[in-house]
Design a protein around this nucleic acid. Structure first.
Lengths: 195, 195
DNA sequence: TTATTGTTTAACAATTTTGTCAAACAAAGG
DNA sequence: CCTTTGTTTGACAAAATTGTTAAACAATAA
């Protein structure tokens, strides 16, 4: 192979994403990932130099993608309620594939010496203003706009994070829980919007 | 010291709880904990035999305590709304001390080969019936009772889990976020109960 | 063909983390 | 004092994980 051939590299990335963020094994070793990918462990070092660089690489890429995806929705000119629905869709879709990405993002943040560049993006500031407008109109509960966002994110994300716990606590099967999850959008919209 | 003296053991437990569930370093090494406790690392093996047994020990104790605490509230004879408020109080208090216990419980569950004994406790079944009654009365949004519980837990717990992320996303200081957190109870009650 | 480039592998080395052990130490009772 | 019991420590061993290297291998182009 004289010409570059990145299909192995991509395969390792895909596998790592799956092991880390789908299976939730955030501390998987290079051997774990090599096994899951069916490749020699040394290849991970060949392509990514170190275990940490592999993790950082896939993590940062996924985090950025998630950010951009949300941003894209929030910056559309859809009416507020539609925009919220779209945001729920986007989140639900990602969470079904990578439920643990969210956990990685937040627990990761906690332990970073080198904190992320403090962002507070403008699209969020902008959307918070829209939230304020809706509160004034009375379409959503009146409080600080941040609460609306926290409520929204909480209601969407948390059920995915605690799925195994909920299965036990409520005595549900995988199938029953998936059904519940598919009802979430409707439940959330009903809760957040006063008709 | 001829008579048993468990203050070092207790100190290690307390420190481990803090490192694991307050600081969120769920993968802290024995050295990390020994350092934090200011004791020789070997003492951890002396008292707990292995790192895993230390973790399992404090984790299982904390998990059980959390369960029992919730159970106690749900089994009181308070009216539904009061009971819900009390539950929020109990959760908020624990989350302020050990925000990462919840994460440990859920991510832990995911990776256990030996799953917990499938519980689905009766007190939960009982409370779900009460939820159903309230839905019929129209005091809370009509859907499956599980959704009410999921909504409740989500709204309480999630803001703690994603605190660092939220600080950035909304451009808030620690103080501002604490203020927000202290408003959660009111916001949640307002959202879940129609008046 | 063979030289070149990139890929894959096994063997090995280094590091990190965990676990063991024997000896030192401290308190209390006889 | 000295024995007993429980505690603490440092030195050491073992295991797990990560990282490096050199050599084998495959594809392609000159």
């Amino acid at each position: 192979m004289a010409i570059k051939d990145n299909k192995t590299e991509q395969h390792i990335i895909d596998t790592a994403m799956h092991v880390f963020f789908t299976e939730g094994k955030l501390n998987a070793t290079t051997q774990d990932i090599a096994d899951a990918a069916g490749v020699n462990r040394t290849l991970i070092h060949y392509y990514f130099r170190s275990r940490d660089q592999l993790f950082d690489s896939v993590f940062e890429k996924a985090r950025l993608a998630a950010m951009i995806e949300s941003e894209a929705v929030l910056e559309t000119t859809l009416p507020f309620k539609k925009k919220t629905e779209k945001l729920i869709d986007v989140f639900l879709k990602r969470l079904k594939t990578y439920p643990f990405l969210e956990i990685a993002i937040t627990t990761g943040l906690n332990q970073m010496e080198t904190a992320f560049p403090a962002s507070n993006p403008k699209y969020m500031q902008q959307f918070l203003k829209e939230v304020q407008v809706e509160m004034n109109k009375g379409t959503i509960q009146k409080s600080k706009p941040v609460h609306f966002m926290i409520n929204l994110f909480s209601l969407i994300v948390y059920p995915f994070i605690v799925k195994p716990l909920n299965l036990q606590l409520f005595g549900l099967s995988e199938q029953e829980y998936e059904k519940i999850v598919n009802e979430r959008k409707k439940v959330i919209m009903g809760l957040l919007f006063s008709e």
